[in-house]
């Protein structure tokens, strides 16, 4: 990460017609088949989520006792659950929940950890001590305690689960951003900017952040995957978003009692979950390798 080659830096060095940094990154990313395939998958999944009402034929909460535990058939091509609800419909609407929860988590968490981490790294001192020690303490809390707190105070709603996942995940990215800023801070161009009279805000937004952005991009990709994972864990344990909202983890949890008589209830949502989490992992890997080829293979 030390030698972040920005277009400007390359130009200054007078190395002639080198490719601009981001073109190079794009080229390296596109060469990674797994990552590109994952992007295609995520685009498809997002389309399914957005178009859910158009491509499904039942309501996601529509109960039909006559069709209880139906096997996959022409009318219900992924079968039906105990209450006779169409699994494909619930899966498509569940994609909305998974993706929107993950997106909200990543936005809130990135902003929060940037504020905490970048400021801690840049200013150091008591803010640094307090926030980093708080992060240490937070990482010792079992997740079930944190989520129990949120649902017992605010109820099992979507935004509550978002907050719970943020509360569990901000420490990692805050530490990452802090390290990035610390590393950039000691560079000479920051000193030059300060010497030429730039305000702190300008230095932070125009000089520090653009140069510390790589770990942020990578952590966003990984963050989406782990937010989806955590949301499904809560759903499975019955401490996440409440029925009858169609959430994937919840659907897998329901399938537990029907492994014998209706295994399709397990395989469809579980498959969607695994594919989605893996896709974001591969995208994260691809981005990391593309942004910094030196890190290839490292975690």
């Amino acid at each position: 990460m030390a030698a972040t080659v920005t277009p400007a830096a390359v130009g200054d060095a007078g190395l002639g017609d080198l490719i601009p940094f981001w073109t190079d990154v794009r080229r390296r990313f596109l060469r990674n088949k797994l990552a590109v395939g994952s992007v295609v998958y995520v685009v498809l999944l997002s389309l399914i989520a957005i178009l859910a009402p158009l491509i499904t034929f039942y309501g996601p909460k529509k109960i039909n006792p006559a069709a209880s535990l139906g096997k996959p058939s022409r009318a219900h091509w992924m079968g039906t659950d105990l209450l006779g609800r169409d699994v494909w419909t619930r899966l498509a609407f569940g994609a909305r929940i998974s993706l929107s929860v993950a997106l909200a988590v990543v936005v809130v968490s990135t902003v929060l950890s940037l504020l905490v981490g970048a400021l801690a790294g840049y200013f150091g001192g008591w803010w640094d001590t307090i926030t980093m020690r708080t992060a240490d303490v937070f990482s010792t809390l079992p997740y079930i305690v944190v989520v129990l707190f949120f649902i017992s105070v605010f109820g099992r709603k979507v935004w509550v689960i978002v907050l719970a996942i943020v509360a569990l995940g901000w420490m990692g990215s805050a530490r990452l951003f802090r390290a990035g800023v610390l590393q950039v801070k000691s560079q000479e161009y920051i000193e030059a900017a300060r010497a030429s009279g730039c305000s702190t805000l300008r230095i932070l937004t125009r000089h520090v952040l653009p140069n510390a952005i790589q770990p942020i991009i990578v952590s966003v990709a990984f963050g989406i995957g782990s937010a989806i994972l955590l949301e499904s864990v809560f759903g499975f344990l019955g401490v996440g978003i409440a029925e009858p909202t169609p959430a994937w983890g919840l659907m897998v949890g329901d399938a537990r009692d029907h492994l014998f008589d209706a295994p399709h209830l397990f395989f469809f949502p579980a498959g969607a979950l695994v594919l989605t989490v893996l896709a974001f992992t591969f995208i994260g890997d691809g981005l990391r390798d593309a942004l910094d080829p030196k890190l290839r293979g490292a975690k």
């Binding site: 864990v233 537990r256 492994l259 295994p263 579980a270 979950l273 695994v274 893996l278 890997d285």
Partner: peptide
């Protein structure tokens, strides 16, 4: 190892049970 990191624990458990 990468794939295992992407499979939720409870999915793996149910898969083995099945």
């Amino acid at each position: 190892a990468v794939a295992l990191a992407g499979i939720p624990v409870f999915v793996l458990g149910l898969l083995l049970q099945y």
